[in-house]
Design a protein around this nucleic acid. Sequence first.
DNA 1: TTGAAAGCGCTAACAG
DNA 2: CTGTTAGCGCTTTCAA
Lengths: 344, 344
Amino acid sequence: MSSRKSKQPTIWDIAIKLNVSISTVSRALRNAGDINPETKKAVLEMAEKLDYQPNAIASSLRKSKTSVIGVMVPEFIHPYFPRVILGIQEIANAMDYKVIVMQSNESYEIEKQNIQAMFALRVDGLIMAVSRETTDFEHIRSIQKKGIPIVFFNRVSDELVGSKVVVDDYRGAFLAVEHLILTGCKRIAHLAGPDKLTMSINRRNGYLDALRTHGIAADGRLIMHSDFVEGRARTYMQELLNNPDRPDGVFAVNDPTAIEALICLKDNDVRIPDEISLITFSNAPHSSFVSPSLTSVVQPLENIGLVAVQLLLRQIDEGQYFTPETVTLDTELVVRKSTRNLAD
Amino acid sequence: MSSRKSKQPTIWDIAIKLNVSISTVSRALRNAGDINPETKKAVLEMAEKLDYQPNAIASSLRKSKTSVIGVMVPEFIHPYFPRVILGIQEIANAMDYKVIVMQSNESYEIEKQNIQAMFALRVDGLIMAVSRETTDFEHIRSIQKKGIPIVFFNRVSDELVGSKVVVDDYRGAFLAVEHLILTGCKRIAHLAGPDKLTMSINRRNGYLDALRTHGIAADGRLIMHSDFVEGRARTYMQELLNNPDRPDGVFAVNDPTAIEALICLKDNDVRIPDEISLITFSNAPHSSFVSPSLTSVVQPLENIGLVAVQLLLRQIDEGQYFTPETVTLDTELVVRKSTRNLAD
DNA sequence: TTGAAAGCGCTAACAG
DNA sequence: CTGTTAGCGCTTTCAA
């Protein structure tokens, strides 16, 4: 009858049919401990027949462990976080953990709520990038205090203790600029980020040191600190072009900046890379569908996720004996069409 | 002592301290039924003091209801699904539901696993877009049979019963092509999708009917059915350009196609929109960072999520008495720079 | 208005 | 190898 309350079959149903105890069923299902192969087979068959599906809620309650790890990101409109999440899911699933994803929408309030929700759901651990808006970290410390392990990535704060996964901004920038130099650029501009942001500073330092290393004098007028507002980079690029002393290479702090620069260059009929080379510090693994394709320093996105999960699982296992670690991942230079050949 | 097992405070802890029963505490916490305001106040204060956080797992088990809705999408690398999820989260949170997101990575196997996992977690309902790879729907029917309400969107199948949220592809295409006609295009090409896909067919029909309505004869040579392989659309666009009888307007079936067409046009030094207008049926709300910006028919992304959640919640409430509904949402024409002015 | 008690479905001693 | 039993933390009758 369809009037049957839509209750799911439980181990109890299986036990009754087979005339065994629920513990036997439980053992068979989890292939735990000693159990008669025959009994086990019977249980498995009956489970199949009744279309039994374990109730993770009940199991979690009993075990005080959910095997779920929470991931909170500020947004997943841009390709960066989704890629990292991919890496997280892959390894987490392999380790028999489920992943649940929430996003703070760059809002402190939502982040706070989500943290609460994740805790209510009793996730075994959390991987997160704090929202741009967040300056007060009490909500995070609060659940750390309750014993929930957290691994931070991308947006990390010195005010927080915990494992962190970051990329080597300095070195990535260094490599990028060095590549410009090695392909013949003499006058290299930097479309930089906000000059307070650690990330921007590190990348700028990489830029400066690459110049220095190769005996090129830095020129302050070639460094433009953008505030990441849309359209800003384009304006700066135009400024650089208006200057009689145009650069012959541009290092953009990130993809959006690079794209704006690219559009600007094209609108000015500047040939890339013949007249000006363009290189970017990229979030995404491929700066797709722009022409020419952009030579980039790329972050090992899936790897960030992988490392984060490993760190987290170790912390879950080791509990209070775990000491937080910061892992700095290297970037990779991917040469495409927006810079010249080394041979030139 | 930090040796204290990191167990969380429970209603029992509160009850003990206050010398009341756990049922009283429970009632106070959920402001249920009759309860002395004083008692309630005391409970709330003690909860605060102990930093009590409810255990949703226990509550779910008892109530056989998790207040969690699952969302499964094929991917969230492209902006489409994330936007829809945003809409889902917004309304779901407002209704006191949590949202957990999983992605199938366009894989049938992963989709199947995730469905299992979601069921194990006993989500109250599911909103999903089936993976591209999925042709067998048993795993989906299986949990529908178990009473889990599901709402489908974007990728829907006639083989599945259940509520569906889709956009009006036919009408959107019609509007797009009509816009080209009204802005003076006489010879309009269509970079179409695979000719088996319902979506492609609907959009092509919209294209054809718009031409017909405005007394323009369709020309089969102007319709190029792509298989969505990268680079294909570009080849087709080039073919159209090589033809002595070039089109003066192009309707692209989706964003990637449009972008490839755009690049091709630029590489051929075709002026847009002066020589050729370009319009796209877009997934994203703004076809950002290309130049010129693309006039598009856009889908109401957040709205798709909103409608899906509403449908789902109704089904959760009404249970077996609910009759599946298919909601068709309208598209909107957003005029940007890749088409000419109406005044022309 | 409050308390006692019975579970939700499962796991994990412990005993046989 | 299997069964009995006691909960995990919470909600919800039912009775007081």
